[in-house]
Each structure stands twice: as C-alpha cells, then as structure tokens.
C-alpha cells in the first residue's frame, strides 16, 4: 500500500514541472524567427518534457490548468524544502528564483 502523503508529493512534483516539446506547439505563420524574452526560458524548459507528457501518467501528471502563481509557489516550496524524497525536490534546487518564476509564467495560466 502506498501512503497517501507520498502520492500527494508525487502528484505535486509532477504538476509543477510539466513541459512541452515544440512539436506540440501551435505554429506561427512562417516568418522567421520569433525572438522574444521567452527565448532562453524555452530552452530551459526542454528538460521538463523528459518526464512530463501532455497527458497525465501515474505519478507524473501533465502540467495544466494551474495558475502561474500556484506553479511558482509549488516550485519554490520544493526548492526550499529540506525533504529530498522526490526528484522534484532535488531538481528545483538547481534553478534560481527568477528562473522558477519564468518557468511558472511559461507553463502556467494567467491568474
């Protein structure tokens, strides 16, 4: 039997780091190239889709329907927690607060 609190941790860890590959994105009209401030955050976000798909899978849900604010709170809580029991605790520590904020804006919905 898996303890509920563990399941909770996993779901949250998965929820905060969902990412998309460019394949799944809506396409722009073919004018080259789109350069914006989100440039480097898109590259940073590439790591996330190694685990997080567009659809939920057991223990690793999709990132969707969350506000940027909630996402940032979760990511930053992972970073600050001394608990290392999920991969997300150990991953979040590798990013600056600003990177986490921009990842949250990249993936989250406007609140």
């Amino acid at each position: 039997m898996i303890a509920w609190k563990h399941a909770t941790m996993i779901i949250l860890s998965a929820a905060v780091m969902g990412c998309r590959s460019p394949v799944e994105h809506q396409r722009l009209t073919p004018t080259d190239p789109v350069v914006s401030d989100s440039d480097d955050i898109e590259a940073i976000a590439l790591s996330c889709s190694g685990c997080h798909a567009d659809e939920a899978r057991p223990g690793i849900p999709a990132l969707s329907g969350l506000s940027s604010g909630d996402l940032y709170d979760s990511l930053s809580s992972y970073k600050r927690s001394t608990d290392g029991s999920t991969v997300m605790h150990r991953i979040a520590r590798g990013y600056s607060d600003e990177e986490l904020q921009r990842l949250a804006e990249h993936f989250g919905e406007e609140s």
Binding site: W4, K5, T8, M9, I11, L12, A15, R20, P22, E24, H25, Q26, R27, L28, P30, D32, P33, V34, V35, S38, D39, E42, D54, E55, A56, P61, A62, S64, G65, L66, D73, S74, S77, Y78, S81, H106, F107, G108, E109, E110
Partner: peptide, 25 residues
C-alpha cells in the same frame, strides 16, 4: 505545501495542455 485531497483531485482532473504558447519556428 502539500495540497489536500480535494485540491489534488481537481489538479488531476484539470485536463491536458491549456495555454498553448507558440514555439519558435
């Protein structure tokens, strides 16, 4: 920061990708 059971269920049922950001092409 762990969500409670109800938060979690709404989180799970939230569906798939919603905000589609354009990627560079």
């Amino acid at each position: 920061f762990f969500p409670n059971r109800r938060d979690l269920l709404s989180l799970i049922s939230a569906g798939t990708i919603s905000a589609m950001l354009p990627a560079k092409v």
